[in-house]
Design a protein around this nucleic acid. Structure first.
Lengths: 206, 206
DNA sequence: GCACGTGTTTGAACGATGTTCAATAAAAAA
DNA sequence: TTTTTTATTGAACATCGTTCAAACACGTGC
């Protein structure tokens, strides 16, 4: 069989195994030797496919970010909202979806924000862009919600709302979240998003 | 007389050196051997004073949290606000102080939220409480700002505001922050805090 | 001064880690 | 079949946190 095909096949197996490990035991449990054993290849083979473990982790995180983005976008119950109220509902649904994903995929989600590159190597551009994409999802309902605001201002505001939601989810997920506290977090998100939108609407769209 | 004193003296030197290393090169640069060399003691001596490096890191982070708390509390320009407006100013000042601290002590601040205990050891209670204290600072201005709200509700709301602010600072500090983007972040904080308070005041204090 | 006991200090040794690369095996070409 | 090229391997290397038997220091009794 073709060499490239086997390469891709092994790459996929490595990614799946790494993803499983991260999901099950967290990012810190990812070990080169254990991975090689699980996939039944030599350690060196990992380095034929990825330059180092950082690259492998980045690939895993990219997959996580992709899934997360998909979940957040599909959380917009009315893709083309007619009223501002529907747009607002989309926004809160997105925030809730973000929280749900973090709860249901705790370790993988944490890996995305916990991982630091060794030394001072720079993040590849495609990965930075993948992260940026997350912000853009918030921008869509905002456009309907605050149509009079300049696009640039709306973009940074989207970032702000995302950051605020992220903060609540981030600190919330640190503690072990019982089912009850999850509801509480969900309420907090509603408060944040609601207050943000209401607070922003009531002031002049300068 | 001597033995305990020398212990404490060395403990202090270790903490200072570790703090310096973290501040300068980040948490990941903290190494037992390098620390021993810098403090001019043997590696084993570190383990006579701290059970492991996790404990040392926790001590460093505790110091950071303490400084941060001090800075945030002292950011309240009018400790006993007469008007809600003054209380609001205190709140935004606190948020700005939080951001400033993160900017001026980037590595140390990041260390607090980046560090994970090895295996699945539990955080000591005194450390958890130290973290909880951060939330309480926000509660003080809130009391003046939303006096009709039940204390319990106000507490969780304080947590929410803190989380939102933390999110903005956290994601903002990830990217290298130029002087200009710092101002932008500061504006974002004003928006968050302002929207939260205004959004919360305009709804029934149920 | 000497021997003994007690607590302290030491740094080589241990096990694990990510990463490399000479040696080997496999495949392709001649 | 022989030669050349490519792919695979896993022992070896450097470095990490951590341990602990041995060396050391110092007070006490003789």
């Amino acid at each position: 069989m073709k060499p490239d095909q086997r390469r891709l096949e092994l790459r996929k197996r490595l990614l799946q195994a790494a993803e499983r490990t991260v999901a099950q035991d967290g990012l810190d449990a990812l070990r080169a030797r254990a991975l090689a054993t699980e996939v039944k290849c030599s350690v060196g083979q990992i380095y034929n496919i990825f330059p180092d473990l950082d690259a492998l982790i980045l690939a895993v995180n990219a997959q996580t970010l992709s899934e997360l983005g998909e979940k957040v976008t599909s959380a917009m119950t009315t893709p083309n909202p007619a009223t501002p109220d529907e747009a607002f509902q989309n926004l809160t649904n997105q925030a809730r979806a973000y929280l749900e994903f973090a709860r249901d995929n705790r370790n993988r989600w944490q890996a995305v924000f916990q991982h630091r590159l060794t030394e001072s190597r720079e993040l590849p551009d495609w990965y930075r862009e993948l992260k940026e994409e997350l912000f853009s999802h918030v921008a869509t309902p905002l456009q309907r919600l605050l149509p009079d605001m300049p696009a640039e201002k709306r973009q940074v505001l989207g970032r702000t709302i995302f950051s605020a939601v992220h903060g609540v989810v981030s600190l919330g997920v640190e503690e072990r979240l019982a089912e009850q506290s999850f509801e509480q977090l969900s309420d907090q998100l509603d408060i944040v998003v609601g207050a943000m939108v209401r607070g922003l609407q009531s002031q002049a769209p300068s």
